[in-house]
């Protein structure tokens, strides 16, 4: 192994959703600063397998910061100490030799633990299924350039659409609120002409589903925005609130 960092890891181990978990301590040696955080976990797992122990289960897939599957709460912060970065893009050069690193799963009623650091985020899928779309069947569309969209609107919609659905916002929020996630989708579609016909219905259904899933209430601490690996802005939450009020006051 190429590196020279030695670290102490305290990792949450939990057999399944029904069992109780606890923090276990592991020592990893010869870690290279060029490794990603997940590659450091690969090294640890390889060791555990060789020793005949069970490796640590954690979610990950693309390892380039876009699929939103990785999800570790590292030293008290989702996706670790760097801003605008997912765990898979966090590199060990962000840590120092001798550090102790505590790694926990996302914690929320709506995100039950499956095993160790893996959690079930299907609540997000159900929220999207409740209204996070434009009802357009394949083949319905007219020419893409039929409706010009002001560049600023398109850019703002894109910024909201950059959400990767990782759930760091929920993990960071002291109330485990999903407002940033929901508002990003609501905003994206509210900003585009294609989203207008269902705009008010959408925000009501999505907020309704969000409440049903057992997420907490937003208290505007701003932790979600600060920890979001894609920099989704709090102004989306305000936009959603605005639309929600308009929907409640306006609809029949």
């Amino acid at each position: 192994m190429s590196g020279n960092m030695n670290l102490t890891l305290k990792v949450w181990r939990q057999k399944n959703k029904d069992s109780k978990g606890l923090l276990e301590t592991y020592n990893v040696k010869n870690i290279s600063p060029d490794m990603s955080f997940l590659e450091m976990f690969d090294v640890l797992n390889e060791e555990l397998i060789t020793k005949g122990e069970e490796p640590i289960a954690f979610d990950h897939d693309c390892r380039e910061g876009i699929c939103g599957m990785c999800s570790m709460y590292i030293n008290g912060r989702p996706h670790g100490p760097k801003r605008g970065v997912t765990t898979c893009q966090l590199h060990m050069r962000s840590f120092k030799d001798g550090d102790t690193i505590v790694v926990e799963p996302w914690r929320a009623t709506a995100f039950p633990v499956i095993k160790d650091l893996s959690v079930d985020r299907s609540a997000f899928d159900r929220i999207i299924a409740s209204g996070g779309f434009v009802s357009v069947n394949t083949g319905n569309a007219r020419d893409a350039n039929n409706i010009p969209i002001p560049k600023d609107d398109a850019d703002t919609a894109f910024d909201a659409a950059a959400c990767i659905g990782c759930g760091a916002c929920v993990a960071a929020c002291k109330n485990a609120s999903a407002m940033l996630f929901v508002s990003a989708k609501v905003s994206q579609l509210a900003l585009l002409p294609q989203g207008q016909p269902e705009r008010y219905m959408r925000v009501q259904s999505m907020v309704g589903q969000m409440d049903e899933e057992g997420f907490g209430n937003c208290t505007n601490t701003g932790a979600c925005e600060a920890e979001c690996p894609k920099g989704i802005s709090l102004s989306n939450i305000a936009r959603m609130n605005r639309d929600y009020i308009a929907a409640g006051l306006g609809s029949e």
Partner: peptide, 18 residues
């Protein structure tokens, strides 16, 4: 809001984000 997170984190570093 407390109920939305039944198991709390062992370590939090909330001052970093709020």
């Amino acid at each position: 809001n407390k109920k939305a997170r039944p198991v709390s984190y062992a370590v939090t570093n909330a001052s970093a984000n709020s």
